[in-house]
Nucleic acid binder design. Structure first.
Lengths: 195, 195
DNA sequence: CTCATATCGGGACAAATGTCCTTTTTTGTG
DNA sequence: CACAAAAAAGGACATTTGTCCCGATATGAG
């Protein structure tokens, strides 16, 4: 693992905290359930709430003007989303869509901002979550850019051995910012023990 | 410009705030001056303070195990650094080094965390700064990955017309995660009016 | 001024990656 | 089951990008 975070992002601390908070002070903390492949946030639209994943896997991706998709992150338990747009008052620059069935906590933005001011512990958790995202993105971009596709795939498989059986190839390719063809070539390549 | 942020990051709001704060409540807000090409933070070391750029241009880059460098950001006036490591309690994953002469505000980490709790306005500014970084990195990574080198350079030149005369070629290449040779090829290429 | 050192520019070739297509397999739905 | 649609696999070729050079041109220290 070394210094790298797992491919599918999780945040146990935040999950624990929000679970607790929802039990003891459930004011305005909602819950929503989704089936697979449902869109939670659309690209280019207003974002009215901040979300924390309770269960399931969710992907966050953006479609470029040339039609290509790029997956920014896979969100797992405890991961946060929607906070960027709420904090900066911008439209969503990504689409957020479930991969598996999923359940999320949903906090309306006004309530979220209120919580930031009132609840110091929550505030710190959110700050840390943001800092982790920056850190993660920095390392990921650097790697993707500075190593060949093969190295990047090997790295992913080390972080997440069941990668190829769990996540559709197209998503993996979009996560790496490469074509499906290139992904297949590298996977099939002699020496790359599939399994 | 459209939805893209400038290449050299600035944060006027934060600069204004810290300037004001330093005047009226200068407790533990220090100032430091650097010449060009001085290292402010070393990769892999402890970070003891959070910094805000007062003046000058600073680069933030990381050296991969294969010896290649990747520039994460160019910091201009008001930009924040060191906060990731302080918040997460990790070692620096980047080196931070002045490009031009520069002056920075320096806040010891204990004082920074204290300010987070005490000063709601400052806290919100930092949260927003973090959210901006995530946003910026997301768009940048997506572009770099999904477009050809030529498009990426054109985009940079649109954001920052004096790019090629201001920043050394090697730095531009490291910022794009490409080789110097590839950069030169694209710049020289017929049709790419240099100027 | 002079030498050592960065920076710059580019030729020639190799390797990596993308594009375009076709085929097969799997999956989901009536 | 039958069919349409999605996912997977991969051939053939074009293009992009990297590697390894070498020479020219600044730039800075003594």
């Amino acid at each position: 693992m070394s210094r790298y975070e797992k491919m599918i992002r999780i945040n146990k601390e935040l999950l624990r905290y929000i679970t607790e908070t929802e039990k003891t002070r459930p004011d305005h903390i909602l819950r929503e359930c989704y089936g697979p492949k449902e869109e939670i946030i659309a690209q280019g639209k207003n974002v009215f709430s901040v979300y924390i994943v309770k269960k399931g896997m969710i992907k966050c991706y953006l479609t470029e003007e040339n039609g290509k998709d790029f997956i920014q992150e896979f969100f797992g338990e405890g991961e946060l989303f929607g906070e960027i747009e709420v904090l900066n008052g911008t439209l969503s620059f990504c689409a957020v869509e479930t991969v598996t069935e999923a359940e999320v906590y949903k906090i309306p933005k006004e309530r979220f901002m209120e919580l930031q001011r009132e609840d110091v512990a929550f505030n710190l958790l959110i700050m840390k979550a943001l800092a982790r995202k920056v850190h993660y993105k920095a390392l990921r971009h650097s790697h993707n850019q500075l190593y060949a596709i093969e190295d990047n795939i090997l790295r992913l498989k080390k972080q997440f051995p069941r990668l190829l059986e769990t996540i559709p190839k197209r998503d993996i390719a979009n996560y790496l910012g490469i074509t499906l063809r290139s992904l297949n070539r590298v996977i099939t390549k002699p020496g790359a023990e599939d399994h």
